[in-house]
């Protein structure tokens, strides 16, 4: 059951900031700074955090849509970050992505049929009639009618486009799908449809998900394990039930208390964080959360960077004071 499908080791992704006439590199955005985690086959790992925490960059780098600055991404026993050419294209079949924006994620000049068939044809899974038949099956599976395959993306609503994006990802029979804010742009009623669909597909095809989102409630609903990120680092990672019933990192606690809950009679203790998320160009020294942390200890937190350590079985936290 607990077969590791993907192993991320010390992954770093820095983006250069260039300036001046000669486009010299003047600084680095440390979007992902030394992140490690594993994913088991068939599970959903939630990756949650606020804007600029690097969650999307992690997803993109795992898929080699960004080149990693350092570190390894092991799929089986292959290091994805070292694959080239044909080997890399083969690997891409196994890992797919679903994007946030249902508008920019589909080529406006291609028919739905061709959008979904692109992967089928690229990987020589089928051709012509047979490919078309597969597209029809996929459309049915994601809850759309096969009659619609000759239409263009603009003829569909946001939720329907998201279904098309899911069908495109499924077309190559992937083992792992990165869902990058896959329901964030959708209305609540549509969001529930898509979440249910993703859950059904996971069961049917034994898929593994990396579910990236800023919405803690959505992540809680769909994930088996959850990793909380802050400024390019994982601050806490644990089983979902454990994390939500017993959050240990002060940032996780603050994040949970900040989510408004649709129950006016529920009275909660709210931890209000001071200030804004600092820039990842020049992150704070020591623990990156210390300037906003309600319990920070000036003696240690601003000086030493905490390690991600296992405080309970399978519950990792990176905080000096836990």
């Amino acid at each position: 059951m607990n077969e590791i499908i993907l192993e991320v080791k010390n992954l770093k992704k820095y983006f250069p900031i260039r300036a001046g006439v000669f486009r010299r590199i003047v600084a680095w955005v440390k979007a992902v700074d030394d992140v490690s985690f594993n994913i088991n086959r068939g599970e959903t790992l939630g990756l949650v955090g606020e804007s600029g925490c690097g969650k999307t960059t992690v997803g993109m780098t795992i898929l080699r849509l960004y080149e990693p600055t350092a570190g390894q991404v092991l799929y089986g026993n292959k290091d994805i970050s070292k694959l080239r050419g044909k080997e890399l294209r083969e690997m891409r079949r196994k890992m797919q992505i679903i994007f946030q924006d249902p508008y920019s994620s589909l080529n406006p000049r291609m028919r739905i049929k061709n959008i979904i068939a692109e992967g089928i044809i690229t990987h020589d899974i089928a051709k012509g009639r047979e490919a078309e038949h597969m597209v029809a099956e996929l459309l049915k599976r994601v809850g759309l009618s096969p009659d619609q395959m000759n239409r263009f993306p603009h003829e569909f609503s946001g939720g329907q486009r998201q279904r098309i994006g899911i069908a495109r990802a499924l077309a190559v029979n992937p083992e792992l799908i990165v869902c990058d804010e896959a329901v964030s742009a959708l209305d609540v009623s549509i969001q529930a449809q898509i979440l249910n669909l993703l859950e059904d597909l996971q069961k049917d095809f034994n898929l593994t998900y990396i579910f990236i989102s800023h919405a803690l409630n959505v992540v809680k609903h769909i994930s088996d394990r959850v990793a909380v990120m802050y400024l390019g680092k994982i601050v806490e990672i644990a089983d979902k039930k454990e994390l939500f019933s017993n959050p240990l990192h002060p940032y996780t606690k603050a994040l949970m208390s900040a989510i408004p809950i649709p129950d006016p009679e529920l009275k909660r203790e709210r931890i209000l964080l001071k200030g804004d998320v600092p820039s990842p160009i020049n992150p704070p020294s020591g623990c990156r959360f210390h300037p906003r942390c309600p319990i920070a200890d000036p003696k240690i937190c601003s000086r030493e960077e905490p390690e991600l350590r296992e405080v309970k079985p399978d519950h990792f936290v990176s905080c000096h004071l836990v």
């Binding site: 609540v188 969001q191 529930a192 979440l195 409630n217 609903h221 769909i222 649709p262």
Partner: peptide, 11 residues
């Protein structure tokens, strides 16, 4: 009623 039941809840 449907909307209230469609939101994933933290609590």
């Amino acid at each position: 009623w449907a909307l209230l039941n469609a939101i994933p809840r933290l609590d």
